[in-house]
Amino acid sequence: MWPFDAVDWVMLSIPIAYLFILVGSLYTFSSIYRKRKAYRAASLEPWFPQHLQRDIYLSLLHQEDPKVPDSILKAALLRRATEDISRIIQVRSQKQALQVLLQRGSVGDDLWQRFQRAEKEIEDELRDVVQEANAFAPNWGQTIFQSASELSQNNLLRQRLDEILSTADSERQWWDTRRSQIQSELLGELDQDKTKSPKEGSVAGSVAGSFRGTKTASDDDAVLVESGGPAEKTGKGKKKKGKH
């Protein structure tokens, strides 16, 4: 046949083979490259630790024997939303700083990839929670995150308050011992001063008394200066005179 006779098949097979090898090698390269990239992205450490509340909620949801009542599921969903709130706050606050660091080249690209994955995950998670909430009660999805945010705020507040108020006992004890210490020292000082000279004693007593609770060391100092002898006093006086 005419057209096929005119073709030199051997010579034509060379460019065809060339094209075939070129396309084939490009394809294998790209597929291997993409597979590796996906693997590396998947093996990146997740941004957040395990989402315990989500696991609890889903475990409860899938429990069949016996079925978990709705009220517990609602509570578990609320706990899950609370954790989501704290995560979304973290993501929002970290994003700006991370962007700046990335622009300056202070952090690697994989950190940014991890972060973006976390961001996407948390968005899906929020959507999922809203859907679940709406399934329990109409329009609960609109308020569940408000409630959850108050819930976490309230927990934080009470924790902080407990921390402070629990110091009351130890403070009380400290103050009781401190007060009795000061009192006994003052009494002792008064007695001493009385036997030495009644005039100085009364001065020291009133000084110390007006500084109720000041450090005893400084009280001692005051007494020492008081009874320090005439040399110092005259010295001070001379200085004053010199200034005038």
Partner: peptide, 8 residues
């Protein structure tokens, strides 16, 4: 009635 916490 729904057993969910009311809006704050």
């Amino acid at each position: 009635p729904t057993g969910t916490p009311p809006p704050p």
